[in-house]
Design a binder for these strands. Sequence first.
DNA 1: ATCACTGATGTGGTCCGACCACTACGGTCG
DNA 2: CGACCGTAGTGGTCGGACCACATCAGTGAT
Lengths: 245, 245
Amino acid sequence: MDGTPTEETEPEKTANAPQKGTVTQRAIEQIKAMIAEGRLEPGQRLPTERDLAVQLGISRSSMREAIRALTVLGVLEARHGSGIYVTLLEAGDLLETFGVVADLSRGPRLVELLEVRRILESTATALAAARITGDQLVEVEKHLTAMNATEDPEEILAHDLAFHREIAAAAGNETMAAILEGLSSRTFRARVWRGYQEEGAFARTRREHAAIHRALVAHDPEAARAAAAAHVGEVEQWLRAQLTP
Amino acid sequence: MDGTPTEETEPEKTANAPQKGTVTQRAIEQIKAMIAEGRLEPGQRLPTERDLAVQLGISRSSMREAIRALTVLGVLEARHGSGIYVTLLEAGDLLETFGVVADLSRGPRLVELLEVRRILESTATALAAARITGDQLVEVEKHLTAMNATEDPEEILAHDLAFHREIAAAAGNETMAAILEGLSSRTFRARVWRGYQEEGAFARTRREHAAIHRALVAHDPEAARAAAAAHVGEVEQWLRAQLTP
DNA sequence: ATCACTGATGTGGTCCGACCACTACGGTCG
DNA sequence: CGACCGTAGTGGTCGGACCACATCAGTGAT
């Protein structure tokens, strides 16, 4: 596209970043900056990979790496045959990567993660108790009864996740809900649950869920906070004990 | 490896993932799985890009995209001329991406982020009050006095960040500290601070910091929790008011 | 024997060009 | 008018080439 090769061979200083780090890293920062500055709106479609590469003066390969990076971060979304789009940049999009932390953590850090979850979950449950509507409560109860009606561990886990997800949603803070979602990612809980439930913790779990539900119905934030903290705290203490046998 | 070009054209079912999603996405999952299963230890060096590509049966280009993705997630680290290494997988490594959320969030979500920070920061400060050592307290005081001794906004911000970072570290939960670090990322606070401090909030900020420090010295968790919650809450309320003028 | 220099080697970083797989859109045909 | 189909454009993949950098063994002077 350049045409006349007599263009500035010397590095242009037109308010552009000179040269720091790899070109791919630079491209990532530039696209991020474009979004942060509002030059790219959520949901908007970007130019093609080829055009973008030309615009930033890099090869398509490097541009693809930059796009891939922003894709896994939940900032961009590539649709085969259609184009590249900015995501809606909602909490869920950007915090999806949180699950990776939970998946790759082991030992002491699992306890730390549960501690964070206990803090956030108890607060979220308290907020939910104050704000939850009738419809939302029905949804919570649906998963609660379904969870108690089956013996299939997989199904129990699924409804357990949904139970807490509905509560987090009722708290009215999408960001907090998204973080808790990542903190309860499938593989994370599956690893902990396996051992925990094998000790006949089903009954205790049901009792704790019932206590949380009771607090929600009563719109009692303090009771809800205590119940949720105790619920997560039980698992936390069990896991803590597992690490020091 | 197989040699004979009479290779099975039909999809191989040798316990391998058949074909879902892009090859790059598959490679990302496979490497993640290798780490999760312990086949790759933290700090360990991986085979070369070229070898890895051959092992997973994909091109080097696709492998590079996978590596780039895991790099931005803080799972891998590429050193030019040396090789690719698994990071130490510490909380700070994996939660670095949290800063992206703060950088790209605007409007209502900024309030939500501050709400999350208020919850975590207040708890972390409470924990710190109970556990902080003399040395750690000295470090905190260093930033406190330095912050009050200058008028340069940039320097104030830097010491402010360090002040809270030291407290979070004293709480003894690296994961929580890493999340708070992301929630206080430079660009995030710079955007909010700009307007907040222009209203002569310096004095108030100093008073709040002094209150937090007093609670730490007294080893009074409840006072620390209240002071930290009020500190963040002030900014939170100010920002909330800005959004509904 | 010790140390600084130097070269070769291997690694990640970048670029290019080609082709494939899929989507979207428009025209055609029933 | 609607279903079908072909085409152009897009992201996805591949292979090869070259560059920039780190590392280390070998060399040489001290």
